Simulated scan of single mutants.
Amino acid sequence: MSIFSRTRDIVASNMAELLDKAEDPAKMIRMIVMEMEETLVEVRAGIARTIADQKEMRSQIARLERMQGSWLEKAELALSKGREDLAKAALGEKQKAAGMAEALRGEIEVLDTGLRASEADISRLQTKLREARSRQSAVQTRLESANQRARLREMHSGPKVDDAFSRFALLDRRVDEAEARAEALALGAPPMTLEEEIAELRNADKVDAELAALKLRIASTVEA
Rank of each mutant, 00 (worst) to 15 (best):
A150D: 15
N203K: 10
A89W: 03
L79Y: 00
A146E: 14
A90F: 02
L216H: 09
A204E: 11
E56G: 10
Q136H: 09
I218M: 11
I32K: 01
E42Q: 14
E17W: 00
E223P: 00
S70A: 08
K206P: 00
Q140A: 14
E223L: 15
M57R: 06
N203A: 15
N203H: 09
M57T: 00
I29D: 01
G158W: 04
S123F: 05
L72P: 00
A209V: 13
A209S: 13
A62Q: 12
M57D: 03
A224P: 03
S2Y: 05
S13W: 02
A150K: 11
E197N: 02
K88H: 08
E223N: 07
R174I: 10
P159C: 01
A12C: 02
A101T: 08
D208T: 13
L214T: 11
G82C: 03
R63N: 10
R142Q: 12
M57V: 00
T50C: 04
L211C: 11
R58L: 10
S166M: 09
R167W: 11
E183W: 06
I198R: 14
R105I: 01
G106H: 06
P159T: 01
E223S: 11
A186G: 10
L129W: 06
M31H: 10
D163S: 14
L187R: 15
M192V: 13
M36Y: 07
A22Y: 03
G82H: 02
K94P: 04
V207P: 00
R8N: 07
K94Q: 15
S118D: 05
K27R: 12
T221D: 07
A26E: 15
R130M: 12
L111I: 00
A146V: 01
E107T: 06
I198M: 15
I3D: 01
V110T: 15
A146G: 08
D208E: 07
A212W: 00
S166K: 11
A180T: 08
L115T: 10
D24R: 08
I3H: 01
M36G: 11
A16Q: 13
W71F: 11
E38H: 13
L216R: 09
V43T: 10
L72K: 15
R167C: 08
R116K: 07
L19H: 03
M28Y: 02
I198H: 07
L187Y: 03
L40M: 12
M34S: 12
A62V: 06
A219T: 14
T39V: 05
G188C: 09
Q126P: 02
S5Q: 13
P25L: 01
A184K: 10
E23V: 09
I10Y: 01
M1Q: 06
I47M: 14
I51P: 03
L77A: 13
I198Y: 06
R173Y: 06
M1Y: 05
A75C: 01
Q148T: 05
K88G: 02
L91A: 05
K27E: 09
